[in-house]
Write a protein that binds this DNA or RNA. Structure first.
Lengths: 122, 122
DNA sequence: CGTTAATGTTTACACGTGTAATCGCTTAAT
DNA sequence: ATTAAGCGATTACACGTGTAAACATTAACG
């Protein structure tokens, strides 16, 4: 099942560090998003029913941990975008960024390095 | 305003060719998506109120054309994804694809070419 | 000229999402 | 033991979206 935008912010907190209590997560995400702790609880529950996270009882509270791996999530999201907008190929996306001048010299250097490695490794 | 997934399929038809009648669009998109012509009409109206497309009366019907450019849409979508998931930088996305073995030799060749050009051009 | 067919306009409706408030149970403090 | 406080669970509610049916209007055909 799909992880929504708001939910993904909770996931990001858990991917950074886990397990966390609801309180921890509210503290990590709430202020930034201007969310009440109630909102965070709702998101946690939805993520639970979606089996995206697990909860382990710890006394009176729960400790939450991700079940879905960030890599898998990132995978689905980026594959989806590339399939929808760039005919499933990565190069056109890079090309688009290049054409719209969204690449800093650092980006370019990093890309060069990556591509070089690829060539060697594969 | 945001263009939804279903709406974007209508936009794609118009980006491929415009102006088009509602009928044209239904013919172009409907079968693939299993949409009734009613559904296409609804999407066209929503896109109109979102000012994503324009309609020019042509006798009894309208001819629809995009107002939003595909490049701008692609721009927003891909920037959004990269900001959300890759810290705003393109290189980590490419890196992710490389690590998860989603690059065909063709992709790699194309990327090499692109990066090479970049280097020269900029 | 009236009826039908083609189009566009309005209304519908369930589901996910963002954003919470309220209810209820359990534990800690008095 | 009673009450208050802290948590989780349940309920709420408006808005966007996917998907379409119903209604209205107008032009064409008989």
């Amino acid at each position: 099942m799909r992880i929504s935008d708001a939910e993904s912010l909770v996931m990001e907190a858990l991917w950074r560090e886990s397990p966390l209590t609801a309180e921890d997560i509210a503290a990590a995400v709430g202020p930034e998003q201007n969310w009440s702790d109630k909102t965070v609880k709702t998101l946690l529950n939805r993520l639970l029913t979606k089996k995206a996270i697990a909860a382990a009882r710890d006394g009176r509270r729960y400790l939450y941990s991700p079940i879905v791996a960030r890599a898998d999530y990132v995978q689905d999201e980026s594959r989806g975008l590339i399939d929808r907008l760039f005919d499933g190929k990565l190069a056109p996306l890079v090309s688009h960024f290049a054409e719209t001048n969204q690449l800093t010299p650092d980006d370019i250097a990093e890309l060069k390095r990556l591509i070089g490695e690829l060539d060697d490794g594969e």
